[in-house]
Simulated scan of single mutants.
Amino acid sequence: MGEAEDGLKPKRVVFVTVGTTCFDKLVQMVDTQEVKDELLRRGYTHLLIQMGRGSFFPTKSAGDDGSLAVDYFTFSSSIADHLRAASLVISHAGSGSIFETLKLGKPLIVVVNEDLMDNHQSELAEELAERKHLYCARPQTLHQTIAGMDLGSLLPYSPGDATPVAKLINRFLGFPED
């Protein structure tokens, strides 16, 4: 791993987002020493957690002692800057968070919230994982996913062409075709 010009390790941020929901199980899991040690072992230096409506507050750390620096916040008007600055994103399975991260070309671990009823989000995450665009985990498997991930094996996501769908909708609604 390269060193920054000041002789310090380059800043490598893991950004965790739960969106507007409460997903304490994910926040609790990334706050475990086991997960933080694995992230540090893999060269990450900072952990920034967007915890949403959750009631579990992670342990903040400045990282001065060589440990992972940890900070958190509840909400932000836009997480786009956090996503852009991240070296790795760990996200809930919301489609907005998934596709915004993939569009930026950031490595992504999606953690499925098994407490949600009728969890169609897990289907999306599992399909994209099968296509090698991201890793999919459950809170209890997050550590193993981080330990076993090979970010070089992930494939870039290219959004499909929506033109045929738009034409079909226009035809259905009775609009003239171009």
Results as ranks from 00 to 15, higher is better:
residue 142 L to G: 06
residue 131 R to H: 11
residue 99 F to P: 02
residue 66 G to Y: 02
residue 4 A to I: 03
residue 149 M to S: 11
residue 139 P to V: 10
residue 95 S to H: 05
residue 173 L to E: 11
residue 34 E to C: 03
residue 36 K to E: 08
residue 69 A to P: 02
residue 44 Y to N: 12
residue 168 L to E: 15
residue 132 K to G: 02
residue 49 I to A: 04
residue 31 D to V: 02
residue 37 D to Y: 01
residue 172 F to K: 13
residue 39 L to C: 09
residue 100 E to W: 00
residue 5 E to K: 13
residue 119 N to A: 09
residue 152 G to R: 09
residue 142 L to W: 05
residue 59 T to E: 13
residue 30 V to E: 02
residue 19 G to F: 06
residue 4 A to C: 11
residue 178 D to K: 08
residue 97 S to P: 01
residue 51 M to P: 01
residue 78 S to A: 07
residue 172 F to Q: 13
residue 100 E to V: 01
residue 155 L to A: 13
residue 16 V to T: 07
residue 28 Q to L: 09
residue 147 A to V: 11
residue 82 H to C: 12
residue 135 Y to N: 09
residue 152 G to L: 07
residue 128 L to V: 08
residue 52 G to F: 01
residue 136 C to W: 03
residue 55 S to C: 02
residue 172 F to S: 13
residue 178 D to A: 10
residue 40 L to V: 08
residue 167 K to F: 03
residue 59 T to D: 09
residue 33 Q to M: 09
residue 66 G to K: 05
residue 115 D to N: 15
residue 166 A to H: 08
residue 56 F to V: 05
residue 99 F to A: 06
residue 37 D to R: 13
residue 4 A to E: 13
residue 160 G to N: 10
residue 125 A to S: 13
residue 39 L to I: 08
residue 153 S to L: 07
residue 115 D to T: 14
residue 4 A to V: 04
residue 47 L to C: 01
residue 143 H to L: 15
residue 4 A to T: 03
residue 83 L to H: 04
